[in-house]
Design a protein around this nucleic acid. Structure first.
Lengths: 331, 331
DNA sequence: CCCTCCTATTTAAACGTTTACATTTATATT
DNA sequence: AATATAAATGTAAACGTTTAAATAGGAGGG
């Protein structure tokens, strides 16, 4: 069943059928009604490949993830998906596992026209490559824009978020505050570390690099980080972590040492993933507006899909600091 | 740059170029070499849409997920992806959020020929619909085959897994064993509950439905379930859960009541997601071979892609019971 | 030198759309 | 009624491939 079959059943040309399908106003109401009824009767659905070939559009966009096993991305994808669907785009999710060759392979889909555009949650390729990619293809970075690359992006103000948290700690009387971070050396991570340093500086506390432990983002690394920090003299009374898994690992180490988390030592996570409420104590965290990060990313991409030469925008969305038991809150 | 351009640069017809691209043996070695060098020189990549239109194949398969926010699916998808790629298939991930209309929408991609086949991790539509779908399109169910549907599937023996766990508990002297399960009433869930009942029966313990609490699969439901079970007289000394999140919730409730998990009460989870090692105590769990579940699913799908009339197979893969602190293990 | 039989290559149709352009039909204007 | 204008519909090319069927070019046999 194709458009030709429908045409012959309607005693019309394929062009008219196509016009009805595409809501072209230049077709008589009576004709339109007849065509629609036949389409409905035979449950005809236009072949997307034929359409793609003719229009040179796939109406698909690629969403590039570093990993599937981070709960954080789930809601971002939902935000992208629902917004994209409204505009007639389907999404295709690919996972790089932080492998550059995988990333390159998937980005190739843009050049091969398998997809019309791409929203990337994490890139390992260098800034120049990103800039040139973004110049030639609809491309948006979400949460983790590549520094110095000229590209549209959506993120939160990571620096300010950690700044606020550290300031709150200081205001509450904490004098020795540690940080457990990662070793990706990417925008969000560096922003968070800068926020930490800036807050200390602005409140008259001297920065000591021994109070910042950098490693991977795994649970274990949180525990290792906490152990190192607890060896510092005087013992830190607050720790801000660059992810929830780090905060969780840190918490577990602190508990194992008989320290009361939220009383003896406060711990702040990052991303507000659901795991923060599954633990004892529950973990305070910085919430990113995940759904909206996805939604705004697609909106930016859509501008590029309409006009590849449209100006690159950098969108910053608000975050929230959520206090739970690990920072002494009881709710 | 299309196949025609390459042809004219080679002074050959498009047919020959196409043959080279598709490794057709009926082309002279010298010609092949020349064509390949030109293709390489211009970095030509065949347009997939043109090919799809002509061959009536998309070389894409759909992977249908109930949710993105379950760590469990991540590795299954990886197994599918890597196996699919070897055969030249790309995967397209879609999320139903357990909404039937979403599921129907995505399954429509099969009929619309957007994808050549589908591996589904969870279906809500009825058995007859699955059977008829599987008869007409390459379709495989992974982990959660629809009962009574005639369809290829891959899963573990859920009944046996729980049977083994309960038997181990009994062998260790436990007399009162509770279960916290879900209320999906799907194959895996019912299998797990049957395993629980059968193990009790086979070892002379009378089944009491008050020792099985059914609710959602959320963390909270684990806590609620544990609370109910702890009210039972005599107090259960072991609990087997239908998921890790339930086990986690149960554990947190037990701890809040001053009970030592792994000593006073043993808790067993299901799926062996990474969270089981992030908690204190660490949670014992039943491991499903996730990567292989994905891999074997694609292999089954591939048989269907080759011949839609090939016989439906049911593959059962092995599981492992992983003991951690929550069942008294100390490693 | 002619014929047969391969092998290598070309030709042209087909896949299912969309759309610029051409044509027909209806309506309005004089 | 004749003409101009607008609206509705039709025609045919184009998108980039693959692949039957046709054809050309040799090699080998007689």
């Amino acid at each position: 069943m194709n458009i030709k079959d429908i045409a012959s059943k309607c005693n019309l040309s394929v062009a008219t059928i196509s016009r009805v399908i595409n809501n072209d106003p230049k077709v008589a109401d009576s004709t339109r009604k007849k065509v629609l009824s036949v389409i409905d009767k035979y449950k005809f659905v236009p072949n997307i490949t034929g359409r793609s070939l003719r229009t040179q559009k796939s109406n698909k966009i690629l969403v590039l993830l570093p990993t599937m096993s981070n709960q954080f991305y789930s809601e971002i994808i939902q935000g992208i998906e629902e917004t994209a669907e409204e505009k007639g785009y389907a999404i295709l999710v690919a996972v790089t596992n932080l492998q550059e060759h995988q990333e390159i392979k998937y980005l190739h889909m843009l050049r091969m026209k398998h997809v019309d555009g791409c929203i990337s949650l994490f890139n390992t390729i260098e800034a120049d490559a990103i800039t040139s990619l973004a110049k030639n293809y609809p491309f948006v970075q979400c949460c983790e824009p590549t520094m110095t690359a000229d590209v549209s992006s959506v993120e939160i103000n990571n620096r300010q978020a950690v700044y606020d948290v550290v300031k709150q700690f200081i205001d509450k009387g904490h004098k020795t505050i540690g940080m457990i971070s990662g070793n990706y050396y990417k925008t969000s991570e560096l922003g968070r570390e800068t926020g930490y340093q800036d807050a200390l500086r602005d409140h008259g506390i001297k920065f000591d690099k021994n109070l910042v432990v950098k490693n991977f983002y795994r649970y274990e690394d949180g525990a290792i980080g906490a152990k190192k920090l607890m060896a510092y003299k005087p013992r830190p009374t607050a720790i801000v972590c660059a992810s929830d898994s780090l905060a969780l690992g840190a918490t577990s180490y602190l508990k194992s040492q008989g320290l009361k988390v939220g009383i003896d030592v406060c711990v702040m996570g990052f991303d507000n993933t659901s795991i923060t409420t599954y633990t004892s104590p529950t973990i305070s965290s910085i919430n990113q507006p995940r759904y909206d990060l996805g939604k705004e990313s697609f909106k930016l991409l859509y501008e590029k899909l309409q006009d590849i030469n449209s100006v690159n925008k950098k969108i910053i969305l608000p975050y929230q600091i959520i206090h739970r038991e690990s920072t002494g809150s009881n709710n």
